[in-house]
C-alpha cells in the first residue's frame, strides 16, 4: 500500500462505490458544447466563496467533473482550448449531489 496521492480520480458519471454520500457535499457537473455534446479534457476549477482556487480536475470521457466540497456557495470555472473560460455558481450541501451543466 503506497501513500494515497493528491491526483484526481477518474471523472466518471457514477459516484465511486467507496464514497459515503451522507458525509460528502458533492458537486458534479458536465461540460458540453452549445449542441450538447460532452467535452472531455476540459479543466474544471473549483473556487470558494472568496474566489480562491480550491481544486481542479480534467473532465472525463463523458465531460464529467466532480468535487467533494463543503456546505456553501462555490464557483466552477471551466477552461478549454481556444481561450475558453466560463464561470458558473453552485451551492453544495452535505448528503447531496449538486448537479451543474456548463456549456462552452
Amino acid at each position: 500500500m503506497t501513500t494515497q496521492g493528491c491526483a484526481a480520480p477518474a471523472q466518471t458519471a457514477h459516484l465511486p462505490a467507496t464514497v459515503d454520500l451522507s458525509n460528502e457535499a458533492v458537486i458534479q457537473g458536465k461540460v458540453v458544447t452549445r449542441d450538447g455534446a460532452p467535452v472531455s479534457s476540459a479543466y474544471a476549477r473549483l473556487l470558494d466563496s472568496t474566489g480562491e482556487f480550491t481544486a481542479e480536475v480534467v473532465t472525463g470521457d463523458e465531460g464529467v467533473f466532480r468535487f467533494f466540497a463543503a456546505d456553501g456557495d462555490w464557483t466552477i470555472r471551466v477552461l478549454a482550448a481556444g481561450g475558453v473560460s466560463v464561470d458558473t455558481t453552485v451551492t453544495a450541501k452535505t448528503g447531496q449531489v449538486a448537479a451543474v451543466e456548463v456549456a462552452i
Binding site: A8, P16, E24, L46, D48, T50, T54, F67, F68, A69
Partner: peptide
C-alpha cells in the same frame, strides 16, 4: 493547501473524498 483545508473545514483537496 486551500484555505478550507488550512482552517480545518476540509481534510483533503476538494476533488477527493473527505474521509
Amino acid at each position: 493547501r486551500s484555505p478550507d483545508e488550512f482552517t480545518g473545514k476540509l481534510l483533503a483537496p476538494a476533488h477527493l473524498p473527505q474521509e
